[in-house]
């Protein structure tokens, strides 16, 4: 991991995992720069709140960990979340930010390991991407992968 890995914010619902970050950080599994935000359901996430994670809360990467697609506690919550992550990816690319800075993960319920893996995936992406540098740019690659997503 680089010295400045950038901040990762993860949204999990009550049903995916109730774990708090402290013991994971104490055990050296996750760095200080990861933050979990718990929701009653990932379906509650709006595109605006995902964007706010970048703009207001200073995230360099964001992931959403929701119930398995067909097994959401609230039927369609995690599917909704995944759609919104998709829109956010588009918006990010329009803004010239790499869309892979946000990702949706469908994880088995009540298990922490997959959530930790998601956080680690985002961290490793950040290692390549680096923190978001606020400047005007039209990154072609970003646009391409945005479309692909």
């Amino acid at each position: 991991m680089s010295d400045r890995p950038g901040k990762v914010i993860g949204f999990c619902c009550n049903y995916t995992t109730q774990v708090t970050e402290e013991p994971l950080k104490e055990a050296g599994i996750l760095p200080e720069s990861v933050e979990f935000k718990r929701l009653s359901c990932t379906g509650k996430l709006e595109v605006s709140s995902l964007l706010a994670a970048f703009s207001r809360h200073g995230a360099d990467a964001v992931f959403v960990a929701g119930c398995p697609e067909e097994e959401c506690h609230n039927f369609s919550g995690s599917r909704r979340a995944s759609k919104r992550v998709k829109y956010t990816k588009q918006i990010l690319s329009e803004l010239g930010i790499e869309p892979e800075r946000i990702e949706m993960f469908f994880v088995p319920r009540q298990e922490t390991e997959p959530v930790v893996k998601a956080a680690k995936e985002m961290l490793s992406r950040l290692e390549k991407l680096g923190p978001i540098i606020k400047k005007d740019s039209n990154n072609k690659e970003g646009n391409d992968s945005g479309k692909a997503a």
Binding site: V19, P23, A27, Q110, T112
Partner: peptide, 25 residues
């Protein structure tokens, strides 16, 4: 409610009496 494992370590998560969640390896 369950025993969880992260990177080979057993993780327990529970809710304190006042409602706050807690986890420990």
């Amino acid at each position: 409610p369950k025993v969880d494992q992260v990177e080979g370590k057993l993780l327990l998560t529970w809710t304190e009496e006042d409602g706050t969640p807690k986890s420990e390896f």
